[in-house]
Structures are given as structure tokens and as C-alpha cells.
Write a protein that binds this DNA or RNA. Structure first.
Lengths: 342, 342
DNA sequence: TTTGGCACTCAATGTATGAGAGTGCTAATA
DNA sequence: TATTAGCACTCTCATACATTGAGTGCCAAA
């Protein structure tokens, strides 16, 4: 267990390191944080903390640098201090839904805003869970051999695909079909699918092939956990000293571009309501070992919505957490504000 | 005017510089390109070419580096050699339309493919010109105070927005409204707008406010030149020696992220059918002074479609041009192939 | 007109050196 | 017993300096 003073020393090291990025020495601490104690005293404490796995030395004759374990302690302290269960969880999701550009527009705005406030990279994602409910389906003829399949899910999430049709169906037939399917609105996909299946067998033998294609497309859209991810401006990364090194930058960038790993991370961690922080190796993605992720999520009505920030392990956690808090609180505002641009 | 031999020297310098990235000296040329002539002879030619503005020396006692003017000559030569009017222009656009994920999916695939083949950054864009034709409009009620506005343009481009409605309209009313508007399908927006306007005045006084909002949203979507841009994988950039320098990388990246400047560039240049190359400062975007853009475009039916590659000024133009050629030729293939991923 | 030779220039690379920051250990101190 | 001052030691970083090598320009000979 840590003594009061050890904790004080440790938190000071983390704080100072986050600010300066340099390994911190005993003298610095003695002057700036623990003015009462001499450098030698602190030196002894630091040696102990190193033994306990909270600090490491990049090389002999260098100051100490916090380990992931130290960050963990630091972040937990910060989170605890913030305690007063700020906002009613989940409520922000409703506001997102009402955004003028739909959920997608809202998430884009939110991620941009998070980027701005945090000075790292904001992100926002919505994961369609299995029970997604349909609001409406539509078929629109594009040309003689293709129609557009349009799916609107509860909450206003829109998916669309072009589907090949083996024989030319008139727009009238397609509309008739759509009308029939839409009487099933409000049910979830599993239910709708079985009803459709039998319906096709009975009445639509003639167009079976087309229907089957459409059904497969729908399956692809609706089944499984499908995460739509938006990342805010990445330009901030250039100002982060930790990413001046091309290698690290590259690692993070690759992840952000692929989205796949990140989506997995979000699905895995964004389960409990409230703010979660995933530090360095904790995220189990080798490329992200120098990065931390701060998440806030909310699950409801068959979809899980996540807002978060990704940045260097040595990020200003206090700033990021309060930025996230603020966005969650003010999210009603971005419903109307975010005009202009593009 | 350039003599035969000067041209030979010049093209060799550009070729060698593109390969090596190092300033090229007279000895190298004498050994590798113009084996008949001695270094001293070439030295003289190079001095002349420098005077003419085709080459510069980074510093005395260094080899020569091509100027934009030299690249221009080089690229024109490459383009000319490719001459045989390969493919029927425009035809590829039809194939793009038939893509299973719609135009957007097709452009995503195309830009990815271009990234892969060129080893730089592929991009694909479609600009909606003024005369965009409507295929269908739909209104879908999301909750008591919002509905989803859905616009499908000719060719299967889909736009959607959430619109606030001041009083709760039932889905039935919305559908009735949509049905009436859709009788106007096939007309362009200018026509539709005037008809709608008078229609609203006459019959819909009650819902005027909602209608006006929707109309404004539609205006925003449909009026003006609206470019939708997709960029392929940026990861390639890390392997380009020219972008190891953080500053240059940053400049290009900023442009790619904003999209705005790039869209302008595409609109300005992508006018004539065939392949166009814009080298360095020619693009009039300061941030892109070290970059070149290779474009191929096609305008038809109220929209302009552009495929292209952006990379360093010192790019392998031959490779990029042939990659672009190939994608244009094979584009029918990607309609069906690009499954999997994400 | 072309070529070989030579002096000169400049970036890049390697080596030595010193300053600075920080540590661990020990002995004196409160 | 816990704390502190002092000191020798270590390692990084920046600077200066010498060396190397590629390349040029120019001149004189072929």
C-alpha cells in the first residue's frame, strides 16, 4: 500500500510529466510540488515507487517516468474527484437524435466538437445492436437492372444500397412491395425477416431471385453488430509532441483509418454508463500502446451510442474528461448550432 | 527551343530524380542514361538548362533538380506517348452507377483501388451541377417534432436530413405530401421548386412553416455546386520519402481533411474529358506546392464525376497515369467485386 | 565541339569535448 | 529514526571540429 506521501509524490510525477513530457527529477518535485521536503527525501520515495512498479527510469541518471499503473491511479483519482454524478445519463442521446442532419450529422458535429475542446481526436459512434427496429423500407428503381434499397431504422439512421434485379420491375411493383413490407414497421428485424420469408414463398415466386438478393442485403445491414464511426479533425495530432515521432503517429493513424480495431474497442468497453478511461496497453491493441481512450457511452433501444476522445497516453486527462463532460451536458445545443461549413 | 540532346538530358534528370529523390549529377547521367557522352558535356548542357529555367541547384556543388517547368515537359511527353485514345470516355460512369452500394460505394471502392495501385492517395468525387434531376422525395416521421427528409437524385445519389416540424404531422399527412411532390419526379430542381412554392401557398397554408423549412433544406442540398469527395487510404503517404518531413505531410493532410480546397480544385480542373495533370504550384493552393494531382473526369446528366490521385510532385507519373487508365478501364469490375471489408 | 583534369565548394558524417541534469550512497543532523 | 547535505558517478545532448565524397565550373588539349 502507498503512504500518503508516496501517493503525493506519484501524482506529482504524473502531473508534471503530462505537462512537460520530460522525465521528472527529484529536484523539480522538491521545488514545484513538495516544497517542504528536500530532493534527497523525494529521491528515496521515488526509488521505492520504482520498485513497486509505478515509475521507471529511461536510463540511469535520468528522472522518472510514470508507468501505466501510475496513470491508472492518477486517472482514477481524477475521476473520483469529479464524482458528483453530473448529468442524467442517456438523456443526451435523445438530443442527438433530434439533430437536423440526423444521427450521423449529430455524431459528426459531436466528434468535431470533441476534437476542438480536447485538442486531441474526438470520436463518436453508434453501434446497431441485434434488435434494431425498422421504421421504413423503400425500393426505388434506378435503371432497368438496378434498384435502390433504402432502410430507415428507428431513430432516423439511414442505410442504402443499390441492388441488382435480374428482371426489370416497374416502380409500381416496387412500391406495392414496399407498402406491404412497411405494414410491419416497428417490429425488429428478426420478426420481419421470417414474415417476409414466408410471404415471398407464397406470393412472390415470380420475383424470388430479386427478393432473395434484397433480403441478403438487408441481412448485411441489419444483422450483427454494425458500428458506424465518426472521427473528428485529426489536425490536432500534429501539435501533440508525442506524435512528432513519425512511427507513433503512423501507428495511431493506421488504426483511425481502418476503424475496425477502434470499433471493436468501443464495443468492448463502452458498456457501462459513465466515463471510462482506457490507458495504453490496457486497450489490447499493440498499435495503441502509446495512446489512451476516454469514452462515455449509453445503450438504449437497440443501439449503443459512444462519444470519446483518443490521444496520447500522456494526455491531459483532466481537460479531456471535462471536455467530454461538457459536450455531454451541452449536446442539446449542437442540435441547432452546427450550421455552415462544407 | 530545346535541342534533341537537351531534351534527352532533361527527361533523364526528371526520370532519375523521380526514382532516387536525390539531386542528380552529370556523372550519374553519363553512366546511366547518355552513355555516349562524357560527364563534362552533360555538365554544359545542364548549365544551359538551368539558365532556361528547367533545372535548379539546391546549392553550389550539388546536382540538379527539376523545376515545375521540367515536370510539365516530362508529363506532357508521358501523356503523349500514351496517346492511343484508350477507352471510350464516360462509359465508366455508367458502371459506377450500377455499383451495389450506390454511387457512394462505388466511389469509395474506386478511391481505395486507386490508392492501392498508385501507392499514393486515390480520390473520387461527384459534383452535383445545377440541373440535378429528382428521382424521389420522401418524408418520414421520426418523433413528434422531427421528420426525416429524404432526397434521391437521378443516378441513385441519396441525401437525407432531419427537419424540425413546428406541429406534429402524422405519417399519413407526410406521405400524402410526398406522393404529390413525387408526381413531379424527373424535373429538375428549379422547376420543382416553383411549382411547389405556389402549391404551398394555395393548399398548405396551415403547414406553411414546416414546408418552408423543408424547402430551405432542399435548397441547401440541391442548389449550388455540391461536391461529394472520397479519399482512399492515406497510409501510403508514410512510405513516400517526400512526406517524411512532418511539415509537408501536415500541409497535404490539412487539405485532405478540409476537402474544401480540393473540391474547388476538382471543380476547376476536371472539365475536359481525358487525363489532366496539375503539377506543384500550378494548382494555386499554397499548401499543395509540393504535390501533384492527376485527374480524369466525365460530365454528364447534371453531374461531374472525377477520379484522381494526389501525391508528391516527385511522383511516379507513369505509374499513376497507367493506374488511373487501368481503373477507368476495369471499373465495370469493381461493381461486383468489392465485397468484404468492414 | 567534346573531353580530361584540376581546384574549389558544400552537405553529410563521424569524433571529441563539455555542460547539465539526475541519481545513489554516505555521513552528518534534528 | 527520519531527513538532509554533499559528493562522485553516469548518461544525454549540444557544440565544435575534422574528414570524406559528390559535384561543379572552367580551362586547355584533343
Amino acid at each position: 500500500m502507498l503512504t500518503e506521501r508516496q501517493l503525493e509524490v506519484l501524482l506529482s510525477v504524473v502531473h508534471e510529466f503530462i505537462e512537460s513530457g520530460e522525465h521528472v527529477g527529484s529536484r523539480t518535485l522538491s521545488k514545484r510540488y513538495l516544497t517542504g521536503r528536500s530532493a534527497a527525501t523525494i529521491r528515496n520515495e521515488m526509488a521505492d515507487l520504482e520498485e513497486m512498479g509505478y515509475l521507471i527510469q529511461p536510463h540511469t541518471s535520468a528522472g522518472r517516468v510514470p508507468t501505466t499503473r501510475a496513470y491508472r491511479l492518477f486517472v482514477d483519482t481524477v475521476l473520483q474527484r469529479r464524482q458528483p454524478g453530473e448529468h442524467a445519463h442517456g438523456e443526451w442521446v435523445d438530443h442527438l437524435r433530434a439533430h437536423r442532419n440526423g444521427v450521423e450529422g449529430a455524431l459528426t458535429s459531436a466528434s468535431e466538437l470533441l476534437s476542438q475542446l480536447s485538442t486531441y481526436v474526438g470520436m463518436a459512434a453508434v453501434t446497431q445492436l441485434k434488435q434494431a427496429q425498422l421504421t421504413k423500407i423503400d425500393f426505388i428503381r434506378v435503371d432497368t437492372s438496378h434498384f435502390l434499397l433504402l432502410v430507415i431504422l428507428e431513430g432516423g439512421v439511414v442505410h442504402h444500397r443499390v441492388v441488382n434485379m435480374p428482371c426489370d420491375l416497374s416502380q409500381d411493383i416496387l412500391e406495392d412491395l414496399a407498402r406491404r413490407i412497411n405494414t410491419l414497421a416497428g417490429h425488429n428485424w428478426g420478426e420481419v425477416r421470417t414474415i417476409l420469408q414466408s410471404y415471398i414463398m407464397q406470393e412472390l415466386g415470380k420475383y424470388e431471385d430479386s427478393c432473395r438478393r434484397a433480403l441478403n442485403e438487408l441481412d448485411e445491414i441489419l444483422a450483427g453488430e454494425h458500428t458506424t464511426l465518426f472521427t473528428g479533425s485529426l489536425s490536432n495530432l500534429f501539435n501533440v509532441p508525442d506524435f512528432q515521432d513519425v512511427g507513433r503517429f503512423r501507428a495511431l493513424f493506421a488504426i483511425l483509418e481502418q476503424e475496425h480495431e477502434l470499433a471493436k474497442l468501443i464495443r468492448n468497453y463502452g458498456t457501462s454508463d459513465g466515463i471510462e478511461v482506457i490507458i495504453g496497453e490496457e486497450n489490447n491493441v499493440p498499435e495503441l500502446e502509446n495512446c489512451s481512450v476516454v469514452l462515455s457511452s449509453s445503450s438504449s433501444e437497440g443501439q449503443q451510442t459512444v462519444l470519446g476522445v483518443i490521444g496520447p497516453k500522456r494526455m491531459n486527462y483532466e481537460k479531456v474528461i471535462s471536455a467530454l463532460d461538457r459536450v455531454l451536458r451541452d449536446i442539446a445545443g449542437i442540435s441547432e448550432n452546427s450550421e455552415g461549413e462544407r
